[in-house]
Computed example of a mutant assay.
Amino acid sequence: MNDADNHVLLRGRVADAAETRTLPSGDEIVSFRLIVDRSPAAKRRSSQSVDTFDCSAWTARLRGKALRLGPGDRVEVSGELRRLFSRAGSGVSSRVYVDLGSLTRLPDPPVASNA
Protein backbone atom coordinates (compact mmCIF):
# COMPACT_ATOMS: atom_id res chain seq x y z
CA MET A 1 0.00 0.00 0.00
CA ASN A 2 1.28 3.45 -0.91
CA ASP A 3 0.30 5.98 1.75
CA ALA A 4 1.81 8.92 -0.15
CA ASP A 5 -0.42 10.77 -2.60
CA ASN A 6 0.47 13.98 -4.39
CA HIS A 7 -2.84 15.18 -5.80
CA VAL A 8 -4.54 18.58 -5.60
CA LEU A 9 -7.94 19.80 -6.76
CA LEU A 10 -8.51 23.55 -6.93
CA ARG A 11 -11.34 25.76 -8.14
CA GLY A 12 -10.76 29.43 -8.77
CA ARG A 13 -10.38 32.28 -11.23
CA VAL A 14 -7.70 32.81 -13.85
CA ALA A 15 -5.62 35.90 -12.98
CA ASP A 16 -4.12 36.78 -16.37
CA ALA A 17 -3.86 35.36 -19.88
CA ALA A 18 -1.79 32.19 -20.09
CA GLU A 19 1.78 32.44 -21.36
CA THR A 20 3.74 30.00 -23.51
CA ARG A 21 7.40 29.35 -22.73
CA THR A 22 9.95 27.19 -24.47
CA LEU A 23 12.31 25.51 -22.04
CA PRO A 24 16.03 24.96 -22.75
CA SER A 25 15.12 21.31 -23.46
CA GLY A 26 12.85 22.47 -26.29
CA ASP A 27 9.68 21.48 -24.42
CA GLU A 28 6.83 23.98 -24.49
CA ILE A 29 4.72 24.72 -21.45
CA VAL A 30 1.79 27.04 -20.92
CA SER A 31 1.45 28.65 -17.50
CA PHE A 32 -1.16 30.77 -15.79
CA ARG A 33 -1.90 31.93 -12.28
CA LEU A 34 -5.01 30.72 -10.44
CA ILE A 35 -6.71 32.81 -7.73
CA VAL A 36 -8.45 30.72 -5.07
CA ASP A 37 -10.64 32.19 -2.32
CA ARG A 38 -9.73 31.14 1.19
CA SER A 39 -12.29 29.39 3.36
CA PRO A 40 -14.19 31.41 5.98
CA ALA A 41 -12.17 29.71 8.74
CA ALA A 42 -8.87 30.64 7.06
CA LYS A 43 -10.07 34.24 6.59
CA ARG A 44 -10.63 34.51 10.36
CA ARG A 45 -6.98 33.57 10.98
CA SER A 46 -5.48 35.92 8.39
CA SER A 47 -6.28 39.17 6.64
CA GLN A 48 -5.39 37.43 3.36
CA SER A 49 -8.62 36.46 1.55
CA VAL A 50 -7.15 34.62 -1.47
CA ASP A 51 -4.20 32.46 -2.44
CA THR A 52 -2.58 32.33 -5.87
CA PHE A 53 -1.10 29.25 -7.48
CA ASP A 54 1.00 28.92 -10.61
CA CYS A 55 -0.32 26.20 -12.92
CA SER A 56 1.66 24.63 -15.79
CA ALA A 57 0.29 22.62 -18.71
CA TRP A 58 2.72 20.27 -20.46
CA THR A 59 0.58 18.22 -22.86
CA ALA A 60 -0.67 19.64 -26.17
CA ARG A 61 -4.31 19.15 -25.12
CA LEU A 62 -3.88 21.01 -21.81
CA ARG A 63 -1.74 23.75 -23.39
CA GLY A 64 -4.52 24.41 -25.91
CA LYS A 65 -7.16 24.57 -23.18
CA ALA A 66 -5.04 26.93 -21.08
CA LEU A 67 -4.43 29.28 -24.02
CA ARG A 68 -8.19 29.66 -24.53
CA LEU A 69 -8.69 30.95 -20.97
CA GLY A 70 -9.03 34.62 -20.16
CA PRO A 71 -8.70 36.68 -17.00
CA GLY A 72 -11.62 36.01 -14.65
CA ASP A 73 -12.57 32.66 -16.19
CA ARG A 74 -13.63 30.17 -13.54
CA VAL A 75 -11.79 26.84 -13.72
CA GLU A 76 -11.25 23.59 -11.90
CA VAL A 77 -7.75 22.15 -12.07
CA SER A 78 -6.26 18.97 -10.74
CA GLY A 79 -2.71 17.74 -10.79
CA GLU A 80 0.39 17.27 -8.71
CA LEU A 81 2.44 19.79 -6.77
CA ARG A 82 6.00 20.26 -8.02
CA ARG A 83 8.85 22.20 -6.48
CA LEU A 84 11.22 23.93 -8.86
CA PHE A 85 14.66 25.06 -7.73
CA SER A 86 16.72 27.73 -9.48
CA ARG A 87 19.87 29.70 -8.83
CA ALA A 88 19.41 33.42 -8.30
CA GLY A 89 22.57 35.42 -7.74
CA SER A 90 24.46 33.77 -4.90
CA GLY A 91 21.52 31.78 -3.55
CA VAL A 92 19.00 29.15 -4.49
CA SER A 93 15.31 29.91 -4.72
CA SER A 94 12.33 27.64 -5.14
CA ARG A 95 8.67 27.82 -6.01
CA VAL A 96 5.81 25.37 -5.94
CA TYR A 97 3.45 25.00 -8.89
CA VAL A 98 0.60 22.73 -9.98
CA ASP A 99 1.61 20.31 -12.76
CA LEU A 100 -1.78 20.03 -14.46
CA GLY A 101 -3.43 16.67 -15.08
CA SER A 102 -6.82 18.17 -15.93
CA LEU A 103 -8.29 21.58 -16.63
CA THR A 104 -12.00 22.37 -16.91
CA ARG A 105 -13.59 25.76 -17.56
CA LEU A 106 -16.57 26.18 -15.23
CA PRO A 107 -19.78 27.94 -16.21
CA ASP A 108 -20.24 31.51 -15.05
CA PRO A 109 -22.31 31.76 -11.86
CA PRO A 110 -25.94 32.75 -12.35
CA VAL A 111 -26.61 36.47 -12.18
CA ALA A 112 -29.04 37.50 -9.43
CA SER A 113 -32.23 38.98 -10.76
CA ASN A 114 -33.89 42.02 -9.21
CA ALA A 115 -37.32 41.20 -10.64
Rank of each mutant, 00 (worst) to 15 (best):
S94Q: 11
P24N: 05
V30M: 06
L67N: 08
A17G: 12
V96E: 14
V14S: 02
L103P: 02
G89V: 05
G72V: 04
W58L: 11
R21I: 01
R45V: 00
N114R: 15
H7A: 12
L67P: 00
R74K: 08
L34K: 03
G64W: 00
Y97C: 06
A112R: 15
D16W: 02
L9M: 09
G26E: 12
A66R: 01
D99W: 06
A60C: 00
L69W: 03
N2C: 02
R13S: 07
R45T: 07
V8G: 03
A115N: 11
S39K: 10
C55I: 05
P24D: 11
E80C: 05
R87Y: 03
L103S: 04
R63N: 04
K43S: 05
A41C: 00
R95C: 05
T59V: 02
D73E: 10
A60Y: 00
I35D: 13
N6S: 14
N114P: 07
A42P: 00
S94P: 02
R87I: 08
R21C: 04
P107S: 09
R82V: 09
A4H: 14
S113Y: 00
R95W: 05
A112N: 08
P107T: 11
A15G: 12
S90C: 02
L103T: 09
R44F: 00
S78P: 01
V36F: 05
F85Q: 12
K65L: 15
T20G: 04
D99H: 13
S39G: 01
D37N: 15
A41L: 11
L106Q: 15
V98F: 01
P109S: 07
S31M: 08
C55Y: 12
V75C: 08
R61H: 07
R87N: 06
T20A: 13
S49R: 14
G64S: 09
R33A: 12
N114V: 03
R74S: 11
P109E: 13
L34W: 01
D54W: 13
D16Q: 13
V50D: 10
V98H: 01
E76N: 03
A57L: 02
R83C: 08
P110Y: 03
A60R: 14
V77E: 01
A4V: 13
Y97M: 11
F85R: 14
T104S: 05
R95G: 08
F32D: 02
G79R: 02
S86K: 10
A57D: 03
R45Q: 14
P40W: 04
S113D: 10
R74M: 12
T52E: 12
D27N: 08
R74P: 00
R82W: 03
D51Q: 10
D5H: 06
L62V: 06
W58S: 09
L62W: 05
A15M: 04
L62M: 10
L10A: 06
A57Y: 03
R68P: 00
G89F: 08
S93L: 13
R74I: 07
L106A: 12
D51T: 09
D3Q: 11
R61W: 00
R21A: 07
L34Y: 04
